[in-house]
Design a binder for these strands. Sequence first.
DNA 1: AACCGGTATGGAATATTGTTCCAATGTTGG
DNA 2: CCAACATTGGAACAATATTCCATACCGGTT
Lengths: 233, 233
Amino acid sequence: MCQDGRMVARTRRAQRRTEALSRERITEAAVELLDASGEGGLTFRALSQRLATGPGAIYWHVANKGELLEAATDAVVAAALAEPAQAAGSPRDEIRGVALGLFNAIAEHPWLATQVSLQLSHGPTKPVPLRIFEGIGRHVGALGVPEDSWFTVASALMHYILGSAAQNASNARVAGSAVDRAEFLDAMSSAWEELDPDDYPFTRAVARQAREHDDREQFLTGIDLILAGIRAR
Amino acid sequence: MCQDGRMVARTRRAQRRTEALSRERITEAAVELLDASGEGGLTFRALSQRLATGPGAIYWHVANKGELLEAATDAVVAAALAEPAQAAGSPRDEIRGVALGLFNAIAEHPWLATQVSLQLSHGPTKPVPLRIFEGIGRHVGALGVPEDSWFTVASALMHYILGSAAQNASNARVAGSAVDRAEFLDAMSSAWEELDPDDYPFTRAVARQAREHDDREQFLTGIDLILAGIRAR
DNA sequence: AACCGGTATGGAATATTGTTCCAATGTTGG
DNA sequence: CCAACATTGGAACAATATTCCATACCGGTT
């Protein structure tokens, strides 16, 4: 029976940190960690270390890891949507602005895409989906859409935007530089071309287009497609 | 020095299972577990127990948990897309068929939405995105779209469908019955109505529409919107 | 029949996480 | 100055994915 269990001796007490901990400082550090080390890089231990404290101190400000991710995602998304605040262009441009803001944010923070998708699937009252929905919705009125279609139209736009965002994450993750990106597209296109012709005729057929497409451009084209559909009502 | 370490005695060897393990049996069990206990219910422990074996045996057939999730997702998606195989309707109906197949699959397996989004963000060569892309793309030719737009159009449709899918997960998760669903929508709508009027004017304005909307209908309307946009070219 | 290499199994051990607990400290107001 | 309270940080805990390895089964070859 060698169980000593806790060997007691609640020891030390390094002098306290000078700058107080706060939810803001914590989420800030979390974002930095995510940017630097990717999705799996955010652990309470690494975070503790970076903030020169222990896990317990963090839990005083944040309920759990989910809330931490939520806060980090919200911070980045909020910043991305705030930026332009452009003095009113056409509603089309405004919507494209929101979409591009998100697109760029994901390009800089590849972990964002996964997170946003997750938040979205966690319910429509979470801050992140709300922000995006509102950011888009604000301009659909000006688009000339009849009021009883607002909800449907804004939802459609948001779903498209977030769906695209999720996909383009994979590009962003891999393709830091332009060269990497070319390689990535090449690998993807080649993979598509080697699919079974019976099972994947279409995908094979467009493999070449895929190799040469530009993410951003295609993304915006999609939005125009939806806007055109709205107009065609 | 009480370290005994491994107390040895590699003991027992219960007689082997009768029906052999296989990747199929494993993913099948994984799907059952996910359906029964939700996303967090799938652990190697639980899986081992259900299959009456140890974790090691599972790892012989599956590289890691990610691959397991991937396989489970792929199995369900494949089944969902195979079902109809309807004797050719209009291309519009075909595309709606693919979309609805996914929609229904998610309704039955709430964990699917998150998984599909994840796969999507893991790259365009993963089986699940491929299946969906192909399922949709096959019909865009018949839609009268010029060939050099195939990739863009199919991508737009897919992104919309998967974006919607992710969102509707939250509904599916909560709203098992019709009553639950009504409650859920009510809670959401109320939450929206209590938002800050300055920050969320639009969302507040459509809260009532949101309370009464029908997921499936709205989903299909969105698709029609995109199809209309395509036609308007 | 006895052996043998590769395939498969399953249970114990390990490493790494999220999370809880609590003694110790600062801080604030009486 | 002292007592309540807010905050800290480090150790302990529980749960997990994953690795390791001794074993068993199975096909063919001598």
